[in-house]
Amino acid sequence: MKEGAGALVEGRDLHRAYVLGQARVPAVRGVSISIAPGEFVALQGPSGSGKTTLLNLLGLLDSPDSGQVVVDAKEADTLTEDERSDLRRDRFGFVFQTFNLIPVLTAEENVGYPLALKGVEGNARRDRARELLASVGLPDKAEVRPDLLSGGQRQRVAIARALANDPAVVFADEPTANLDSHTADEILELMRGINASRGVSFLFATHDPNVVRRARRVVTLHDGMIESDRAL
């Protein structure tokens, strides 16, 4: 789905460049893309092709130099910083390459953090966090801090955290890059299952052929532009 009605997130003619020393390096050049409900999309391309930049723009982690990101029919550049924060909290989930769990919080507290941001109190938050941890296969790790978990377990906690507020889209930036192949397969199967069972859209920025193989739609970027956009 390149552009169209019913899109959860839509990028319209996005441009983003970074300044490196004296040089201005374009990362995304005129990209338009839409993510529909229930999609499982892989953004692939060589290093420097603009995958992560596009992911960040669509996830409202960054703002385009020009072009427009539209979320739930709201143009992102009309939103305040707080409104963008609330939108990320309520509609998006994020999974990072390096897991990015909060080290002083237990697995349960990490998962409960987005719920706390939304004002979910005490027991309800704890129950929901434990339910999510169980759903990612970590029912017995609730009280464990991230430094005592394996890489795969940390990524499962991060996935549970990403799902805490029932997001419409989960943005995953190289989620398997720091995992061995067996664990990476498990994590991908987990996300695929969540996509199928909950209807949550996933958008991956990845080099991993395993991810691409499981995707139902593959968008290939080259030099900041979409080279191809294929439904599989």
């Binding site: 924060s85 990320r88 998006f92 953090y113 987005p114």
Partner: peptide, 16 residues
């Protein structure tokens, strides 16, 4: 700093 980025990504407002 990275942790702050994560918290912000998860929806923590600047005031938070």
């Amino acid at each position: 700093t990275r942790e702050i980025g994560t918290l912000r990504a998860l929806g923590t407002r600047p005031a938070g």
